[in-house]
């Protein structure tokens, strides 16, 4: 998964809320992303691999790449499974 590049799936509409980001895929249900998951959504406005996204988020938050990467693997799989992300390659 770390070599694949990911991006937002087309036609996913979204809105910010006090507790994160609401997303609604074309054929799915509304999902609420936590602020940290919303940060990934922000990065994936353009295609990134998990490694690349982890680097960007590590620079933003001061956490280590490795720590973030482990979380992102699962998060990307979850969001892709819900039709919110798609492979860019």
């Amino acid at each position: 998964m770390t070599t694949s590049r990911w991006q937002r799936a087309p036609q996913v509409v979204h809105r910010g809320t006090l507790d994160g980001l609401l997303l609604r895929p074309p054929d799915g249900e509304v999902a609420l992303l936590s602020p940290s998951a919303a940060a990934l959504w922000d990065v994936l406005a353009s295609p990134h691999s998990v490694d690349e996204a982890a680097e960007v988020l590590a620079a933003r938050t001061g956490a280590s790449d490795a720590e973030i990467r482990a979380d992102l693997e699962a998060l990307v799989a979850d969001l892709a499974g819900r039709g919110l992300l798609e492979s860019a390659s």
Binding site: V13, R15, T17, L18, D19, L23, R24, P26, V30
Partner: peptide, 25 residues
């Protein structure tokens, strides 16, 4: 009160997103 606002806002934005998804179709 903050939790109550957050839930009310999520409800309202959930409706807006349902409608925008339809708008795109």
């Amino acid at each position: 009160q903050r939790s109550a606002v957050s839930l009310a806002h999520q409800d309202a934005m959930g409706v807006a997103l349902e409608l925008e998804a339809r708008l795109l179709r």
